[in-house]
Amino acid sequence: MIQANNITYRIGSKTILKNISVNFEAGKINLILGPNGAGKSTLVKVICNQLKPQEGSVFYEGIDIRKASVAELAKVRAVLSQNTELAFPLKVKEVVMMGRYPHFSVNPTAKDEQAVEEAMHFFDVEGMAERDYLTLSGGEKQRVHFARVVSQIWYPSENGCRYLFLDEPLTFLDVHYQFQFMHKLRELLKQQDLVIVGVVHDLNLAAKFADHLVLLNNGELLSAGTKTEVLTQENMKTAYRLEPVIHNDERGMYLFFE
């Protein structure tokens, strides 16, 4: 479980996150929502130890992450950021192998090779293993990075949980792959020691797949809880200045904006 307590993050005089406390549990799809500039990406960066908050602290299984080294943390925590671009031509399987870098010193072991192969198979990119990453389409690149970050935490860690952070993972994907990806996440969560935290923009996708939602607005925590608790007409109006019609029937919950 990840606990973030009273996080405040400022750049200069501007406060990006104001006193935010949230928990993310293992075995659930945790999604962070909010309008542009609400502080979603910043919150993800704080809880994955990329940014140091001025106030508050983040705990993984009760351990303060400021005490963990960059190298140690990389063995149990993988992060998919927005706009990852490669500076040089590299084969797809080499990009995926980067996920295993925290686990070996000079040459990959058989275990690392296996993790890469299985992760590529899992995300359906093994067919492009030998292709140059730079020649792939946006959606294909995104799937390669899925394989990379998942291969990083492919095996259970000896002590404690594994953590997967996804900052807008669905941006370059078509509907088919968006749904496929969310189903894959669900499949990954069968492993009970995995904590998944993601940022998405599509509220209906969140309504369909999320177990736990966190809604940010203007750097503050507006609401947290299940989809029926968070995706209310009032919250949507505050955050997005739009009043959706919220349907909740046997096919699930969806929001209709007009």
């Binding site: 950021s81 980067m98 925290p102």
Partner: peptide
């Protein structure tokens, strides 16, 4: 190669 932030996530 995949960026400074990403490299940090990979333990560099």
């Amino acid at each position: 190669m995949i960026g400074e932030e990403e490299a940090q996530f990979l333990g560099v």
